[in-house]
Design a binder for these strands. Structure first.
Lengths: 301, 301
DNA sequence: CTAATAGTGTCTTTAAGACATTATGTC
DNA sequence: GACATAATGTCTTAAAGACACTATTAG
C-alpha cells in the first residue's frame, strides 16, 4: 500500500493530518544559541630576544539589558523560525566577528528549567576557533561592548569518595576571565556520580562573579572539550595563521591544553600534520625558524 | 552599587523587568528528546558446546499516528514546561524500559528547519545503555509497539577528494535494523568539508526505508559515538550484568565496535577495569571461565 | 662570546598487534 | 582423545616521555 494513502485513526492521510495540525497547543520553550569563540593571541614580549607568550582568549559581551544587566555573557541569540540551529550559530558568529570562514562545532544543549529568569529558554552552545590575524579589530571599539578575555582554567581540588554502592568524583574548577578592565571569576564544582549503573554529571556553580546565566558552566564544558579535541585532532590549526613555526604551534597547544610539552615529543607527534616551506622567520634575535603550513592530506590517520 | 538596584534604559530594575517580560512575542519551536536505547543480548546458540553470539540492539517504536504513520521512530517526546531536558529524557527512558538506573548521555541537538513536517521541532538526542538482564520483557508484547532491532552498521564507501582549496571526505554508511518481523534500512552519506578554515559535517539521507524523520541520521551519529566511547572509556560495562566472563565482555566490545579483537591484547587493555571473583561458569561444554565484576576504582586512569 | 631559540638523537617506558602455547572443562 | 573455550607468554611495532646534545642567528 502506498504510504501517501495510509490513514490514521481519524481516517486522515498524512497530507490531511498536516493541514489540520495545530502547532500552538503545546507550551514551547525559546531556543537560543550561545557561542564560545576562542582565539589565541600574542602577548607583549618581555625582551626583544624572547619569544612572545601566547594566551587563550574568549569573546564575551557586556549585557546592557536585564536580566544580568552589567554582567558579561557569551554572545548569542534566538534561533529564529526560518533558520537551522547551525545557521543561527553561523549568523551570530558573523555578527560578532565579521568572519564566516571559521571552524565551528556544536557542544551541548543546556535545558534546566530556570536557567533564564525571563522564561523557559533552552540554549545550544557552539564552540568556534578563529585565527586572531583574520579577525578585524572589532571587539574593543565596538558599540556592542564585546571584549576578548584571557582564559585561565585551573583545577583547585579533586576528590574521590567511595561509598558502599556509590562512587563520587568531585572536581572544583576555577575559571578566570580577565582583560585590562575586568576580571571575572567562576568556581564550579563538577560532580560525577556513579551509583549502580547510573552515571551522571552535575555542575554546581559556587561562584560566578560577573558572568551571566549559566555561562560559567558552558565555559567550563567548552574548555574541557577544547582540550580533548586539541589532544586528539587537528583543530588547533584553526587557531593558526597560514604560515607558522613549530614553536608557535607548540605554544598554541600548550596554552589550550594548559600544560607544557616537550619539544622533541611534540615535533614527532605533529610531524605528519604539517608541511615545511622554504621560508624562515627573520630578525628574531636568535636562530631563525622554518615556517610550516598545515598538511591538508592529514586527517585522523 | 547593588546588583538588585541596577536599572536599564527604561529605568527598570531586574525584578521590575521580569514582571513585565512578555515571553510570547517570539516564535518558538517545539523541543523534543529522542532516545537511542542500546542493549546487547545473547542470540541462540548454534551448538550446545559453542558460546552464544551477542548482538547489539536498539529500541524503536512503531508510529501509529501521522506523520510517518506505520514507520519506525526512536522513542521520545516533548520536553514539557516544568522539566529539564535531562528530566524529559529520563522520563522517556522510564516509560519505555521501566528502569531508571541507567547510563545516559546527551548526544546532539538536531535543528534543521524542516526536520518535522508538522511544525518547527528541535530535538535533543540522548544515548542510553542498558543491561538486557535488568530489562523487563516489555518491548515485544506491549501496547506501545516498541521493539528491539538488531543493529548492523557498515561503511559502504569512503572517498577523499582534494580540490584546490578544499578537501572533502565522503563516507557512505549502511545501517540495517532487523528483527523477526521487520527489516529497516538506511543509507547515509556523511560529508566532511574542509574549505579554508571551515570544517563542517553534513549528512545526506540516501535511503531511509521505514525509519521516520531524521532518525536514521541520529542512529548513525549514535553508533559512531558509542564506538568512540567504548574504545576510550568504561561505558561498555553498562551493557554488562553484575558478573561476567572476560569472553563475554570481549564479545560486547566486539559487537559494539563492529570488529574482532585479539583476546590477549583485549585482556591486557581491560585488566585494570575488572576485579576477579572466585566464581566460575558451569556446564559450558568446555573449560569454565572465571567470573569478573567491574572495578569501580578504575576511572579514566 | 652570549643569550635565546631551533632542531635532532637516543634511551626508556608503555601500549598494542600478532601469534603461539598451555590449561581445563564436557562429551 | 576431541572439541571448544580460557588464559598466558613473548616477540615485534609504534608512540610517547625524558633528557642530552648540536645548530644558528643577533648583537
Amino acid at each position: 500500500m502506498n504510504i501517501e494513502q495510509l490513514r490514521d485513526k481519524q481516517g486522515l492521510t498524512e497530507v490531511e493530518f498536516l493541514q489540520k495540525y495545530d502547532a500552538s497547543i503545546y507550551q514551547r520553550p525559546s531556543v537560543t544559541v550561545d557561542m564560545l569563540i576562542f582565539t589565541v593571541v600574542d602577548e607583549e614580549k618581555e625582551n626583544y630576544r624572547k619569544l612572545s607568550e601566547k594566551s587563550l582568549k574568549l569573546l564575551m559581551v557586556k549585557r546592557g539589558v536585564h536580566p544580568y544587566i552589567g554582567q558579561w555573557a557569551l554572545p548569542g541569540g534566538f534561533v529564529t523560525e526560518n533558520e537551522s540551529i547551525d545557521e543561527a550559530a553561523l549568523r551570530e558568529l558573523k555578527t560578532e566577528t565579521n568572519i564566516d570562514d571559521v571552524y565551528m562545532e556544536q557542544l551541548y544543549t543546556w535545558g534546566d528549567v530556570n536557567r533564564d529568569p525571563r522564561t523557559r529558554v533552552i540554549s545550544c552552545s557552539y564552540m568556534a576557533l578563529v585565527d586572531c590575524r583574520s579577525l578585524e579589530v572589532k571587539a574593543g571599539d565596538d558599540a556592542d561592548d564585546a571584549r576578548w578575555f584571557n582564559v585561565r582554567y585551573s583545577v583547585l581540588e579533586e576528590k574521590k569518595t567511595m561509598l558502599e554502592k556509590d562512587l563520587i568524583f568531585e572536581k572544583v574548577v576555577k575559571i578566570t576571565l580577565s582583560n585590562d578592565e575586568d576580571i571575572l571569576e567562576a568556581i564550579i564544582k563538577v560532580i560525577e556520580k556513579y551509583s549502580g549503573k547510573t552515571a551522571r554529571v552535575e555542575r554546581e556553580v559556587i561562584v560566578s562573579n560577573g558572568i551571566a546565566f549559566d555561562h560559567a558552566e558552558m565555559i567550563q564544558y567548552a574548555v574541557e572539550r577544547l582540550r580533548n579535541k586539541v589532544e586528539y585532532t587537528d583543530i588547533a590549526f584553526n587557531l593558526m595563521p597560514e604560515l607558522f613555526t613549530l614553536s608557535e604551534l607548540q605554544q598554541v597547544y600548550e596554552v589550550t591544553l594548559g600544560k607544557e610539552l616537550l619539544s622533541a615529543a611534540f615535533r614527532r607527534k605533529i610531524a605528519d600534520m604539517v608541511m615545511e616551506t622554504n621560508q624562515f622567520t627573520k630578525d628574531a634575535g636568535h636562530r631563525p625558524a622554518k615556517l610550516f603550513r598545515f598538511n591538508p592530506n592529514w586527517r585522523y590517520l
